[in-house]
Simulated assay, not measured.
Amino acid sequence: MEISSQIPWSTIAAVISWYSSNIGVLLLNKYLLTNYGFAYPVFLTLCHMTACSVLSYIAVSVMDVVPFQSIQSRTQLVKICGLSVVFCFSVVCGNISLKYIPVSFNQAIGATTPFFTAVFAYLVSRKREAWITYGTLVPVVAGVIIATGGEPSFHLFGFLICVSATAARAFKSVLQGILLSSEGEKLNSMNLLMYMAPIAMVVLLPAAILMEDKVIWITIEIARNDIRVVWLLLFSSSLAFFVNLTNFLVTKHTSPLTLQVLGNAKGAVAVGVSILVFKNPVSVVGMMGYGLTVIGVILYTETKKRYRL
Protein backbone atom coordinates (compact mmCIF):
# COMPACT_ATOMS: atom_id res chain seq x y z
CA MET A 1 0.00 0.00 0.00
CA GLU A 2 1.34 3.43 -0.88
CA ILE A 3 2.28 5.75 1.98
CA SER A 4 0.00 8.49 0.59
CA SER A 5 -3.03 6.21 1.19
CA GLN A 6 -1.99 5.67 4.83
CA ILE A 7 -0.76 9.10 5.91
CA PRO A 8 -2.17 12.40 4.53
CA TRP A 9 0.36 14.40 2.57
CA SER A 10 -0.46 17.43 4.73
CA THR A 11 0.80 15.50 7.77
CA ILE A 12 3.97 14.40 5.95
CA ALA A 13 4.60 18.00 4.85
CA ALA A 14 4.08 19.26 8.42
CA VAL A 15 6.56 16.72 9.84
CA ILE A 16 9.19 17.48 7.17
CA SER A 17 8.75 21.23 7.79
CA TRP A 18 9.03 20.71 11.55
CA TYR A 19 12.23 18.71 11.18
CA SER A 20 13.73 21.16 8.69
CA SER A 21 12.96 24.31 10.70
CA ASN A 22 14.01 22.78 14.03
CA ILE A 23 17.30 21.36 12.78
CA GLY A 24 17.86 24.41 10.58
CA VAL A 25 17.60 26.92 13.43
CA LEU A 26 19.95 24.82 15.57
CA LEU A 27 22.60 24.63 12.85
CA LEU A 28 22.22 28.29 11.88
CA ASN A 29 22.47 29.45 15.50
CA LYS A 30 25.59 27.32 15.95
CA TYR A 31 27.08 28.80 12.78
CA LEU A 32 26.30 32.38 13.87
CA LEU A 33 27.59 31.97 17.41
CA THR A 34 30.80 30.07 16.63
CA ASN A 35 31.82 29.76 12.97
CA TYR A 36 30.63 33.25 11.97
CA GLY A 37 31.72 34.77 15.27
CA PHE A 38 28.50 36.61 16.20
CA ALA A 39 28.96 35.90 19.91
CA TYR A 40 25.76 37.52 21.21
CA PRO A 41 23.28 34.80 22.21
CA VAL A 42 20.98 37.12 24.22
CA PHE A 43 20.61 39.53 21.30
CA LEU A 44 20.09 36.57 18.97
CA THR A 45 17.25 35.37 21.21
CA LEU A 46 15.82 38.92 21.20
CA CYS A 47 15.75 38.77 17.38
CA HIS A 48 13.96 35.41 17.58
CA MET A 49 11.32 36.75 19.97
CA THR A 50 10.79 39.83 17.81
CA ALA A 51 10.10 37.64 14.78
CA CYS A 52 7.83 35.37 16.84
CA SER A 53 5.88 38.41 18.08
CA VAL A 54 5.27 39.80 14.59
CA LEU A 55 4.73 36.53 12.73
CA SER A 56 2.52 34.90 15.38
CA TYR A 57 0.29 38.00 15.39
CA ILE A 58 0.01 37.80 11.59
CA ALA A 59 -0.71 34.05 11.74
CA VAL A 60 -3.40 34.34 14.42
CA SER A 61 -4.99 37.76 13.92
CA VAL A 62 -4.56 38.33 10.18
CA MET A 63 -4.34 34.91 8.48
CA ASP A 64 -6.62 33.07 10.95
CA VAL A 65 -4.31 30.04 11.08
CA VAL A 66 -5.94 29.33 14.45
CA PRO A 67 -8.90 31.03 16.17
CA PHE A 68 -7.94 34.11 18.18
CA GLN A 69 -8.08 33.62 21.96
CA SER A 70 -8.15 36.69 24.17
CA ILE A 71 -6.70 37.02 27.68
CA GLN A 72 -9.61 36.68 30.10
CA SER A 73 -8.24 38.25 33.27
CA ARG A 74 -5.32 40.04 34.91
CA THR A 75 -4.53 36.81 36.76
CA GLN A 76 -4.18 34.95 33.47
CA LEU A 77 -1.88 37.70 32.16
CA VAL A 78 0.33 37.42 35.25
CA LYS A 79 0.57 33.66 34.69
CA ILE A 80 1.56 34.19 31.05
CA CYS A 81 4.22 36.70 32.16
CA GLY A 82 5.68 34.10 34.52
CA LEU A 83 5.76 31.50 31.75
CA SER A 84 7.42 34.04 29.44
CA VAL A 85 10.29 34.62 31.86
CA VAL A 86 10.95 30.86 32.19
CA PHE A 87 10.60 30.46 28.41
CA CYS A 88 13.07 33.31 27.90
CA PHE A 89 15.58 31.77 30.27
CA SER A 90 15.41 28.38 28.53
CA VAL A 91 15.92 29.80 25.03
CA VAL A 92 18.76 32.13 26.07
CA CYS A 93 20.57 29.32 27.91
CA GLY A 94 20.08 27.03 24.90
CA ASN A 95 21.65 29.60 22.58
CA ILE A 96 24.50 30.34 25.01
CA SER A 97 25.31 26.62 25.22
CA LEU A 98 25.76 26.48 21.44
CA LYS A 99 28.75 28.82 21.82
CA TYR A 100 30.60 26.17 23.79
CA ILE A 101 29.35 22.69 22.88
CA PRO A 102 28.49 20.93 19.59
CA VAL A 103 24.88 20.60 18.44
CA SER A 104 25.17 16.82 18.83
CA PHE A 105 26.05 17.11 22.53
CA ASN A 106 23.40 19.82 22.97
CA GLN A 107 20.76 17.42 21.64
CA ALA A 108 21.99 14.57 23.84
CA ILE A 109 21.52 16.75 26.94
CA GLY A 110 18.17 18.02 25.62
CA ALA A 111 16.91 14.44 25.43
CA THR A 112 16.83 14.37 29.24
CA THR A 113 13.78 16.69 29.26
CA PRO A 114 11.45 13.85 30.47
CA PHE A 115 13.65 13.40 33.55
CA PHE A 116 13.35 17.06 34.56
CA THR A 117 9.64 17.07 33.69
CA ALA A 118 9.03 14.14 36.06
CA VAL A 119 11.08 15.78 38.82
CA PHE A 120 9.32 19.16 38.54
CA ALA A 121 5.88 17.55 38.24
CA TYR A 122 6.49 15.85 41.59
CA LEU A 123 8.11 18.84 43.32
CA VAL A 124 5.56 21.41 42.14
CA SER A 125 2.28 19.47 42.15
CA ARG A 126 3.18 16.16 43.85
CA LYS A 127 2.20 14.37 40.67
CA ARG A 128 3.56 10.83 40.75
CA GLU A 129 4.16 8.23 38.09
CA ALA A 130 4.36 4.45 38.49
CA TRP A 131 7.71 3.22 39.82
CA ILE A 132 8.40 1.38 36.56
CA THR A 133 8.04 4.72 34.76
CA TYR A 134 10.63 6.31 37.05
CA GLY A 135 12.85 3.30 36.42
CA THR A 136 12.99 4.12 32.71
CA LEU A 137 14.57 7.48 33.61
CA VAL A 138 17.70 5.68 34.81
CA PRO A 139 18.98 4.97 31.26
CA VAL A 140 17.99 8.54 30.27
CA VAL A 141 20.35 10.03 32.84
CA ALA A 142 22.97 7.26 32.58
CA GLY A 143 23.16 7.78 28.83
CA VAL A 144 23.97 11.47 29.20
CA ILE A 145 26.59 10.69 31.87
CA ILE A 146 28.22 8.22 29.47
CA ALA A 147 27.93 10.67 26.55
CA THR A 148 29.50 13.40 28.70
CA GLY A 149 32.45 11.19 29.59
CA GLY A 150 32.97 10.33 25.93
CA GLU A 151 32.47 13.84 24.51
CA PRO A 152 35.73 15.08 22.88
CA SER A 153 34.47 18.71 22.84
CA PHE A 154 33.24 18.77 26.44
CA HIS A 155 33.04 22.25 27.99
CA LEU A 156 31.91 22.48 31.63
CA PHE A 157 30.15 25.86 31.38
CA GLY A 158 28.48 24.89 28.10
CA PHE A 159 27.33 21.62 29.66
CA LEU A 160 25.90 23.31 32.77
CA ILE A 161 24.11 26.04 30.82
CA CYS A 162 22.60 23.45 28.46
CA VAL A 163 21.37 21.42 31.45
CA SER A 164 19.84 24.66 32.78
CA ALA A 165 18.10 25.22 29.44
CA THR A 166 16.71 21.67 29.46
CA ALA A 167 15.51 21.98 33.05
CA ALA A 168 13.88 25.36 32.33
CA ARG A 169 12.11 23.93 29.27
CA ALA A 170 10.69 21.11 31.40
CA PHE A 171 9.74 23.53 34.20
CA LYS A 172 7.89 25.71 31.71
CA SER A 173 5.84 22.77 30.43
CA VAL A 174 4.91 21.75 34.01
CA LEU A 175 4.02 25.33 34.95
CA GLN A 176 1.96 25.73 31.79
CA GLY A 177 -0.06 22.64 32.66
CA ILE A 178 -0.72 23.99 36.17
CA LEU A 179 -1.19 27.71 35.55
CA LEU A 180 -3.35 27.44 32.44
CA SER A 181 -5.28 24.32 33.43
CA SER A 182 -8.83 25.69 33.68
CA GLU A 183 -10.98 25.62 30.55
CA GLY A 184 -11.29 29.41 30.53
CA GLU A 185 -7.51 29.91 30.63
CA LYS A 186 -6.29 27.25 28.19
CA LEU A 187 -4.55 28.68 25.13
CA ASN A 188 -3.33 26.81 22.07
CA SER A 189 0.41 27.05 21.42
CA MET A 190 0.14 29.73 18.71
CA ASN A 191 -1.96 32.09 20.82
CA LEU A 192 0.30 31.48 23.81
CA LEU A 193 3.35 32.31 21.67
CA MET A 194 1.64 35.49 20.45
CA TYR A 195 1.31 36.67 24.05
CA MET A 196 4.61 35.33 25.43
CA ALA A 197 6.96 36.57 22.70
CA PRO A 198 6.35 40.34 23.24
CA ILE A 199 6.77 39.88 27.01
CA ALA A 200 10.02 38.02 26.32
CA MET A 201 11.16 40.96 24.18
CA VAL A 202 10.60 43.35 27.09
CA VAL A 203 12.74 41.10 29.32
CA LEU A 204 15.46 40.48 26.73
CA LEU A 205 16.06 44.05 25.53
CA PRO A 206 17.54 45.38 28.81
CA ALA A 207 19.28 42.01 29.35
CA ALA A 208 21.01 42.29 25.96
CA ILE A 209 22.03 45.90 26.64
CA LEU A 210 23.43 45.05 30.09
CA MET A 211 25.02 41.67 29.30
CA GLU A 212 26.25 42.31 25.75
CA ASP A 213 27.68 45.84 25.84
CA LYS A 214 26.85 47.96 22.77
CA VAL A 215 25.55 44.89 20.92
CA ILE A 216 23.12 46.91 18.77
CA TRP A 217 25.84 49.28 17.55
CA ILE A 218 28.25 46.38 17.06
CA THR A 219 25.65 44.57 14.95
CA ILE A 220 25.10 47.70 12.84
CA GLU A 221 28.86 48.04 12.36
CA ILE A 222 29.17 44.37 11.36
CA ALA A 223 26.31 44.83 8.88
CA ARG A 224 28.06 47.79 7.25
CA ASN A 225 31.04 45.57 6.52
CA ASP A 226 29.14 42.34 5.87
CA ILE A 227 25.43 42.54 5.03
CA ARG A 228 25.19 38.76 5.36
CA VAL A 229 24.75 39.11 9.12
CA VAL A 230 21.39 40.82 8.56
CA TRP A 231 20.13 38.01 6.32
CA LEU A 232 21.46 35.35 8.69
CA LEU A 233 19.70 36.97 11.67
CA LEU A 234 16.47 37.36 9.71
CA PHE A 235 16.58 33.77 8.48
CA SER A 236 17.40 32.40 11.94
CA SER A 237 14.60 34.47 13.51
CA SER A 238 12.08 33.33 10.89
CA LEU A 239 13.06 29.71 11.45
CA ALA A 240 12.54 30.19 15.20
CA PHE A 241 8.92 31.12 14.50
CA PHE A 242 8.41 28.27 12.04
CA VAL A 243 9.66 25.79 14.67
CA ASN A 244 6.67 26.84 16.80
CA LEU A 245 4.24 26.95 13.87
CA THR A 246 5.19 23.53 12.51
CA ASN A 247 5.20 22.05 16.02
CA PHE A 248 1.59 23.25 16.35
CA LEU A 249 0.69 21.75 12.96
CA VAL A 250 2.31 18.39 13.75
CA THR A 251 0.51 18.32 17.11
CA LYS A 252 -2.75 19.07 15.30
CA HIS A 253 -2.28 16.33 12.69
CA THR A 254 -0.87 13.58 14.94
CA SER A 255 -1.36 12.12 18.43
CA PRO A 256 0.71 13.12 21.49
CA LEU A 257 2.47 9.71 21.40
CA THR A 258 3.35 10.10 17.72
CA LEU A 259 4.70 13.57 18.52
CA GLN A 260 6.94 12.07 21.22
CA VAL A 261 8.28 9.43 18.82
CA LEU A 262 8.87 12.00 16.08
CA GLY A 263 10.61 14.25 18.60
CA ASN A 264 12.99 11.48 19.62
CA ALA A 265 13.79 10.71 15.98
CA LYS A 266 14.26 14.43 15.27
CA GLY A 267 16.95 14.63 17.92
CA ALA A 268 18.82 11.73 16.34
CA VAL A 269 18.55 13.30 12.88
CA ALA A 270 19.82 16.63 14.27
CA VAL A 271 22.84 14.86 15.77
CA GLY A 272 23.69 13.18 12.46
CA VAL A 273 23.22 16.33 10.37
CA SER A 274 25.26 18.51 12.76
CA ILE A 275 28.17 16.04 12.69
CA LEU A 276 28.09 16.05 8.88
CA VAL A 277 27.92 19.85 8.65
CA PHE A 278 30.34 20.92 11.38
CA LYS A 279 32.46 17.75 11.40
CA ASN A 280 32.85 17.95 15.19
CA PRO A 281 34.72 14.97 16.64
CA VAL A 282 32.55 12.22 18.16
CA SER A 283 33.45 9.06 20.02
CA VAL A 284 31.88 5.63 20.02
CA VAL A 285 31.31 5.94 23.77
CA GLY A 286 29.55 9.29 23.28
CA MET A 287 27.24 7.91 20.60
CA MET A 288 26.48 4.84 22.73
CA GLY A 289 25.57 7.14 25.61
CA TYR A 290 23.25 9.20 23.41
CA GLY A 291 21.67 6.00 22.07
CA LEU A 292 21.02 4.78 25.62
CA THR A 293 19.34 8.11 26.46
CA VAL A 294 17.05 7.86 23.42
CA ILE A 295 16.11 4.28 24.34
CA GLY A 296 15.33 5.47 27.86
CA VAL A 297 13.09 8.26 26.55
CA ILE A 298 11.20 5.81 24.33
CA LEU A 299 10.69 3.44 27.27
CA TYR A 300 9.58 6.35 29.47
CA THR A 301 7.00 7.45 26.91
CA GLU A 302 5.65 3.92 26.53
CA THR A 303 5.46 3.12 30.27
CA LYS A 304 3.91 6.50 31.06
CA LYS A 305 1.14 5.67 28.60
CA ARG A 306 0.54 2.19 30.04
CA TYR A 307 1.03 2.74 33.76
CA ARG A 308 -0.93 5.72 34.96
CA LEU A 309 -1.62 6.08 38.68
Rank of each mutant, 00 (worst) to 15 (best):
I3G: 07
S4H: 14
S5N: 13
T11A: 10
I12N: 08
S17M: 08
W18C: 05
Y19W: 08
Y19A: 01
S21W: 00
N22L: 12
G24E: 02
Y36N: 00
Y40T: 09
P41K: 01
V42D: 04
F43M: 15
M49D: 07
A51E: 04
C52M: 14
C52N: 14
C52G: 11
S53G: 03
V54A: 04
L55E: 00
S56K: 01
S61I: 10
D64F: 12
V65D: 11
Q69S: 12
Q72N: 14
T75C: 04
Q76I: 00
G82Y: 00
F89Q: 03
V91F: 08
V92W: 02
C93N: 02
Y100R: 06
Q107E: 13
I109P: 02
I109V: 15
Y122T: 06
V124G: 03
K127H: 12
E129T: 08
E129A: 11
W131S: 09
W131H: 11
V138G: 02
V140H: 07
A142R: 10
G143I: 05
V144A: 10
V144H: 10
I145A: 15
I145E: 13
A147G: 08
G149Y: 13
G149I: 05
G150A: 07
P152T: 07
S153V: 09
F157L: 15
G158L: 10
I161C: 07
C162H: 13
V163E: 09
T166K: 06
A170D: 05
G177L: 04
L179E: 01
E183R: 15
E185R: 05
M190A: 07
M201A: 06
M201K: 04
L204Q: 01
L204N: 02
L205S: 03
L210W: 06
K214V: 10
W217G: 04
I220Y: 15
A223Q: 10
R224D: 11
I227E: 14
I227P: 09
R228V: 13
R228Q: 14
W231C: 14
L234E: 11
S236A: 15
S236N: 14
V243T: 03
T246V: 04
N247P: 06
N247Y: 09
T254L: 03
S255T: 15
P256Y: 12
P256T: 04
V261Q: 11
N264T: 12
K266I: 06
K266C: 07
A270V: 02
S274T: 04
F278M: 11
N280E: 14
N280I: 11
G286A: 15
G289P: 00
Y290P: 03
Y290G: 04
L292C: 05
V294M: 10
V294S: 04
L299W: 13
Y300C: 02
T301Y: 07
E302W: 12
E302H: 12
Y307G: 00
Y307T: 01
